[in-house]
Design a binder for these strands. Structure first.
Lengths: 355, 355
DNA sequence: TTGAAAGCGCTAACAG
DNA sequence: CTGTTAGCGCTTTCAA
């Protein structure tokens, strides 16, 4: 059980003061190369590890960024996190990953905890439950940089990274129309969440611009935020429901890949051909989209790039002199990945996926 | 730009000393309820946030656990991480997630960084490149609890959580044999990694116990640690290769779900029926296993439970008085999830999956 | 080129 | 019940 060596230990052994050792290690110009060398040698020998906590206390910087996600085990968030890490680690930051489980209460607890830890910044995607953002304002008021991504709050004044959900939906639906679909259903998410609202608008506008009337019966709302298995089940149910009426759709644009998987399963068991009779497009380009048969067309959101941007925004903000910084809004254009589920003539080509 | 309020600020305002305030906040028994109340009130009013770093420096505890994974955006690791978090957050610990990208050099840098941050413990799964574990010994020597999971080192004396890979493989192959397979191929991983070695042994023993001769030509090694897309491609190639020889298998046991997806794709394009002509079983029970057609039988490793165990082991160790603690080895039995790819008579039942 | 000393924000032993 | 004091490990003026 050996205690950790501190600057004091090695100072004593060397017969100099702590400050000298500290300076030697920080490569201070006015320290003789002789003592520098002596210090470095001893540091190795005694297996000295600088105590970051002491430095953090002293400098007020922890070099830690808090990341809050609804859940870390979804491909989407996992990939964004990876993107953040890629850019911030280079500047010496570490990430603390926290999960809100979509609950406002947990989210608030996490924020308090992170502020207490003295994180240098917070990058977050808000929980589906959350409708009031005063807790996020709290972060800003404490002068801690806050970057929001994907699910951003309505009226928070801070930097954000979002995907262009309107465009993603618009492109997807336009593609369906070009394939000849005239009755396109839409599985939409909770309306108070902006990304789902944007996708709905993209859907509506695409119809409008192609002079296709909107049929309210073809728009179904669902809580798309849940375990993949559960959303898939819901997708099956909704699809069955759609095909029980007499306005049967010939295309489905789903705001969730998992719901779309359910649609495919439901149609297959009804022996309805995809895409000949019904075309389907999902959202997020989950790995399974390329696995399922037929391959599911989907909107790729470039998640890692979102993470990169969020990280970069954070670095911009901390590295800019105070008062100088202006919040930035980054919008990333998604890409429609076309697979068999929406394109009868496509020779299935897995290499089309760039992930 | 308001500075953070400290104990000193609120002490001054109240005309008492810092210690009084500190004690009031920690609910010290010998502080008058009057002053306690006064303190609490002011704390709210001044928006005081205790500075954990100062406490950490003072107590020597950071309440941070470092987690090292090869990559955080794989379902397997994401799920383990979630499992760890579930148990440790209750005791006030935060996780710092770091990715080695399978590289020994990065792994070592991360370890140094974590030790410097003064983490209270490290939970890790080692990079595929790593063959020498002296860096992990370094952690132990610094008296920092180290828990290894899944990919554990060969000769490190510490607590570990692993899946019973031998049993997983044995059960899978036995199942194939029971289904009538006589020529079972195996796609195995890098041999220096224990989990793959164990799965190979399980495969071999299952054959032996059923008096089936081993055919070396049916065993193919592949680097199963890579991007899912790449492994899938490799799976296609290996399968095509297998079916070019004159010992064609009637069953495939793959150490990776992704390679198995490739096998399915390859066989489908050859119009070979699964499972009638060839049965297939994968490993890890990835979400896509239930999506692909036919559903892929796979070995579920109970990843979240692995994370729970790792977290619990850590807590056990830090909470036990020093010198008292004995390392523990936890082995989690995996479960074979049977789907259509190995079972002609199965009515596909997605609800069989427990995840 | 180095030393002495103050202080980052907090806790805790000791004293009243 | 509350104040005084020392100290966690390090950085950084100010002196020498």
């Amino acid at each position: 059980m050996k205690k950790k060596t501190t600057l004091a230990d090695i100072a004593k052994k060397l017969g100099v003061t702590i400050s000298t050792v500290s300076r030697a290690l920080n490569d201070h110009p006015k320290i003789s190369t002789a003592t520098k060398k002596a210090v470095i040698d001893l540091v190795d020998k005694m297996n000295y590890q600088p105590n970051n906590i002491a430095t953090a206390l002293q400098s007020g910087k922890s070099n830690i960024i808090g990341v809050i996600v609804p859940t870390s085990d979804r491909q989407f968030f996992a990939s964004v996190i990876r993107g953040i890490e890629e850019v911030v680690r280079k500047e010496g930051y570490n990430l603390i990953i926290c999960q809100s489980d979509e609950q406002t209460v947990k989210e608030q607890k996490i924020i308090d905890a992170l502020l207490q830890i003295q994180v240098d910044g917070i990058i977050a995607s808000v929980a589906k439950e959350t409708t009031c953002y005063s807790y996020f304002d709290k972060i800003i008021h404490q002068n801690v940089p806050l970057i929001l991504f994907d699910r951003v709050g309505q009226n928070i004044d801070t930097s954000t990274v979002v995907s262009n959900d309107y465009k993603g939906a618009y492109d997807a639906v336009s593609h369906l129309i070009e394939q000849g679909c005239q009755h396109i259903a839409h599985i939409k998410g909770l309306k108070h969440i902006k990304i789902y609202q944007d996708r709905l608008n993209g859907y509506l506008d695409a119809l409008k611009h192609h002079q296709i009337p909107v049929d309210e019966d073809l728009i179904i709302e669902s809580d798309l935020i849940d375990d993949p298995d559960i959303i898939l089940e819901a997708g099956i149910k909704m699809t069955n429901h759609l095909f029980m009426t007499n306005h049967q759709p010939d295309g489905i644009f789903s705001s969730s890949d998992f719901a779309a998987f359910g649609s495919i399963e439901a149609l297959k068991s009804k022996c309805i051909n995809i895409p000949e009779e019904v075309s389907i497009i999902g959202y997020s380009n989950d790995f399974s989209s390329s696995i399922i048969d037929p391959g599911l067309s989907s909107v790729d959101q470039h998640t890692k790039k979102m993470g990169n941007s969020a990280g970069t925004l954070f670095l911009d903000q901390v590295n800019s002199s105070i008062g100088e910084y202006r919040y930035k809004q980054v919008v990333i254009d998604p890409t429609l990945i076309i697979r068999k589920s929406s394109s009868p003539n496509l020779i299935e080509n897995r290499k089309a996926i760039s992930r």
